[in-house]
Simulated scan of single mutants.
Amino acid sequence: MDDDTAGTARHTGQGHDVREFFASRAHDWDARFPDDGPAYEAGVAAMELRAGDRVLDAGCGTGRALPALRAAVGAGGAVLGADLTPEMLAAAVRAGRGRLASLVLADVHRLPLPDAALDAVFAAGLLSHLSEPGAGLAELARTVRPGGRLALFHPVGRAALAARKGRPLTPDDLRAEPNLRPLLARSGWDLVRYVDEDARYLAMAVRQGA
């Protein structure tokens, strides 16, 4: 689920709705967004990962962020891609991205990882597809060491995305800074950077407890 394309992907907030939505689109997902590569590279670069870091691409979809994540952490680092939809992971493998990371079929609300196992999490278009956003963010916090980073990313900003889909921005949008900051704080994160412009959306947070 590496792109927030429509609120319809979360009809009732249940995981099977997300899987169904993305399963039917996995075969041509990359072709729909052929120009997003540089935006993903810039989003990963903003995380300032180091060689040897352990990083999760949460809701990795077809794995468009995996090349940049692997390049950032090097051969000695660990890259994990987790997604709820088997068809999206299969598309990642067909694209050759399975060689860059360990791919796992998993729900972000229940990750098969021990506490503090990661240095960072990259999540593209994830927040809108979480059935329980607070619980999902708290689960990501559980898996990241104190001081580790979370990047909530999208290759276009909220206004541009809403215009693309012909729907208005609403005050209850979780990605808006006034809503996101307290949500992250309750979930174990401190928001340290917020960018919402036509060319990208990036909310960077640090794991509390450092």
Rank of each mutant, 00 (worst) to 15 (best):
V44P: 07
Q14D: 13
R175L: 15
L184N: 04
A39W: 06
G125L: 06
A9W: 07
P67N: 13
V195Q: 04
A205I: 00
L150Q: 09
A162H: 14
L174E: 05
A42W: 00
L137F: 14
D17I: 05
T143N: 05
H129M: 14
D2E: 12
P178D: 07
L126F: 00
L184W: 10
A106M: 04
L169Y: 05
R99T: 15
R64A: 15
G209W: 12
V18D: 07
T62V: 05
P133F: 13
D190K: 10
Q208N: 05
G52R: 14
Y194R: 14
G136R: 13
D2F: 06
A51Y: 03
A117D: 06
V93M: 01
R64C: 07
F153C: 08
R186V: 03
A26G: 06
D30G: 03
L174W: 07
R149C: 09
G43E: 03
G148C: 13
G61A: 04
A151H: 01
R50E: 14
V144C: 03
S24D: 15
C60G: 08
G148E: 12
D172L: 05
T8D: 15
G76S: 01
T12V: 07
F33H: 13
L103C: 02
A106Y: 03
G43I: 03
A31M: 01
G147L: 11
L69P: 11
F22P: 02
A31Y: 01
A162W: 08
P38C: 05
G59T: 12
G81F: 02
R70F: 13
L130P: 03
R94A: 11
A141D: 10
G63Y: 04
E87M: 01
Y201E: 02
D190E: 15
A141H: 05
Y40T: 03
R64E: 14
A9E: 10
P155T: 01
D35A: 15
V121D: 02
S131R: 15
P38A: 07
A176H: 14
A82I: 00
D196S: 08
P112H: 03
G147R: 11
D83L: 05
G61C: 04
D57I: 14
D30K: 09
L184T: 10
A51H: 12
L113A: 13
R54H: 14
P34G: 06
E87G: 03
A78I: 05
D83G: 02
A9D: 10
A58I: 12
T170D: 10
A159K: 14
P112I: 02
G37H: 12
A210M: 05
A71G: 10
V18R: 15
E177S: 09
G43V: 01
P168F: 10
D4G: 01
L113F: 15
A120M: 06
G188V: 05
E139M: 12
H16M: 08
G98Q: 08
A91W: 00
G43R: 12
V18F: 09
D107R: 00
D196Y: 04
D36V: 11
A163S: 12
F21G: 08
V79Y: 00
A92L: 04
E41W: 02
A90T: 05
L202D: 07
G7K: 13
D30I: 04
D57W: 11
A26T: 02
G76P: 00
V156R: 07
L100W: 04
V156C: 10
A101P: 09
L84E: 03
L103S: 01
A123N: 09
R145E: 09
H27S: 13
D57G: 10
V55T: 11
A199H: 04
D190W: 08
S131F: 03
T12C: 11
L169K: 06
P178S: 01
